[in-house]
Simulated scan of single mutants.
Amino acid sequence: MTITQLNYVLAVAEHKNFTRAAQKVFVTQPTLSMQIQKLEEELDIQIFDRTKKPIQLTETGKKIVQQARNIVNESDRIQDIVDQQKGYIGGIFRLGVIPTIMPTLLPMFISNFIKKYPKVKLKIEELSTQAIIERLREGHLDAAIAATPLELNGIKENVLYYEPFVGYIPPSHRLHKEAKIKVEDLDIDDILLLEDGHCFKDGILNLCKATRNYDEDHFQLESGSFETLIKLSNEGLGMTLLPYLHTLDIKDSEKENLRMFYDPVPAREVSLIYNRSELKMQIIEALRSTIAGVVKGAIAFQNVKIISPLSNNKKEVQL
């Protein structure tokens, strides 16, 4: 049994096709098939059911793939140990970022990071939280930036910052005259939301569930971007909530419509998340310190209440 054979098994398990798997690991299809067959003969079991289309794992094969992933990760750790001993920070690093964080946070730190760590080849993907979790567990991402807490087995969360929710309230709205707003003021009936799949929407729903003004059966007007929500709000179709960093880039004329919450300010927790195997920790720490350095000057709130994207649990944080 070799690490190479296990990598081939993982590739076929992912792609459910020998030809695509061979392309992924840069070998010919006959070579990959032969090596997997050798492994199956050595173990005296079938890892894949080749009679099904697409190819499926057998019940034993599922357990083998789980263990193979652990072994491959641990073998990668050897190179990690060597890199850390040498003080080397470099190589390919695959980072996932959720859509409501990507356009505001990425421009803030990416240039600094590239200049400081030129040997790191960042491969960044914009992905939903669910896709990020799946890719982390499958070993296709090294880390991700997402709204937390998620409290998932096998996933570590390293908090980067707390980002307040900010009300965007046009002149036609009943709350526009208020200097600040309270959570109790919110009414889900007139809040414009992001479409399904965005954890920021889930956070808003969790926020509103804590008030008397929540109707789970109500249909809200939804959109795929904050820019569209702002335009719809300007047309008098309701208010919306924005992440604080997004408010820094809106037009000066629209900033007059922004309203902060009274303390404790509802906020989302943004974290760097990664596997508990803690591979490439030197790069993860480099990312953490770079992001924390640039965000520290942009967000300065002392009393926030964290709204989870996945549950109704809230926690107050004194900074």
Rank of each mutant, 00 (worst) to 15 (best):
residue 35 Q to R: 11
residue 74 E to C: 03
residue 132 I to G: 02
residue 209 K to S: 11
residue 89 I to E: 03
residue 125 E to R: 11
residue 85 Q to S: 12
residue 290 T to M: 10
residue 45 I to M: 01
residue 194 L to N: 02
residue 169 I to S: 05
residue 169 I to K: 08
residue 63 K to P: 05
residue 249 D to M: 11
residue 104 T to H: 04
residue 79 Q to L: 07
residue 39 L to C: 01
residue 99 P to Y: 03
residue 183 V to N: 01
residue 155 I to Q: 09
residue 62 K to Y: 05
residue 13 A to H: 02
residue 121 K to F: 11
residue 128 S to H: 08
residue 221 L to C: 09
residue 66 Q to F: 09
residue 96 G to D: 05
residue 278 E to D: 13
residue 42 E to A: 01
residue 5 Q to W: 00
residue 56 Q to S: 08
residue 157 E to L: 08
residue 140 H to F: 11
residue 164 P to Q: 12
residue 28 T to L: 06
residue 113 F to V: 10
residue 97 V to G: 02
residue 183 V to I: 12
residue 35 Q to M: 09
residue 232 L to C: 07
residue 246 H to T: 12
residue 218 H to T: 12
residue 160 L to A: 10
residue 11 A to K: 00
residue 52 K to E: 15
residue 201 K to R: 15
residue 119 K to G: 04
residue 303 N to E: 14
residue 138 E to M: 01
residue 249 D to E: 15
residue 2 T to D: 05
residue 91 G to I: 02
residue 138 E to Q: 03
residue 280 K to D: 11
residue 275 N to F: 06
residue 245 L to V: 09
residue 97 V to D: 05
residue 197 G to H: 04
residue 153 N to G: 11
residue 22 A to T: 02
residue 282 Q to E: 15
residue 266 P to M: 07
residue 46 Q to Y: 10
residue 8 Y to F: 06
residue 269 E to L: 03
residue 265 V to L: 12
residue 182 K to S: 09
residue 312 N to V: 13
residue 15 H to R: 04
residue 86 K to W: 07
residue 73 N to Y: 03
residue 29 Q to F: 03
residue 5 Q to Y: 00
residue 36 I to Y: 00
residue 274 Y to F: 10
residue 82 V to I: 15
residue 89 I to L: 12
residue 242 L to K: 05
residue 276 R to P: 02
residue 98 I to G: 01
residue 116 K to C: 10
residue 23 Q to Y: 02
residue 163 E to M: 10
residue 252 D to A: 13
residue 266 P to G: 09
residue 151 E to W: 06
residue 219 F to L: 15
residue 220 Q to L: 14
residue 153 N to D: 14
residue 234 N to R: 09
residue 251 K to W: 07
residue 175 L to Q: 06
residue 173 H to Q: 10
residue 302 Q to L: 08
residue 160 L to T: 08
residue 248 L to C: 07
residue 163 E to R: 06
residue 25 V to C: 00
residue 222 E to I: 15
residue 123 K to E: 14
residue 180 K to M: 08
residue 101 I to M: 04
residue 31 T to A: 12
residue 184 E to V: 04
residue 170 P to F: 10
residue 140 H to A: 10
residue 53 K to M: 11
residue 139 G to V: 02
residue 173 H to R: 04
residue 94 R to T: 06
residue 40 E to A: 01
residue 285 E to S: 15
residue 16 K to H: 07
residue 14 E to Y: 04
residue 72 V to M: 00
residue 103 P to E: 06
residue 90 G to K: 03
residue 5 Q to L: 03
residue 244 Y to A: 04
residue 222 E to A: 15
residue 197 G to W: 03
residue 16 K to W: 03
residue 113 F to L: 12
residue 11 A to D: 01
residue 98 I to Q: 04
residue 256 E to C: 05
residue 221 L to T: 12
residue 224 G to M: 13
residue 311 S to W: 05
residue 247 T to R: 12
residue 310 L to G: 05
residue 304 V to G: 04
residue 136 L to Y: 05
residue 208 C to I: 07
residue 281 M to I: 12
residue 118 P to N: 14
residue 303 N to W: 07
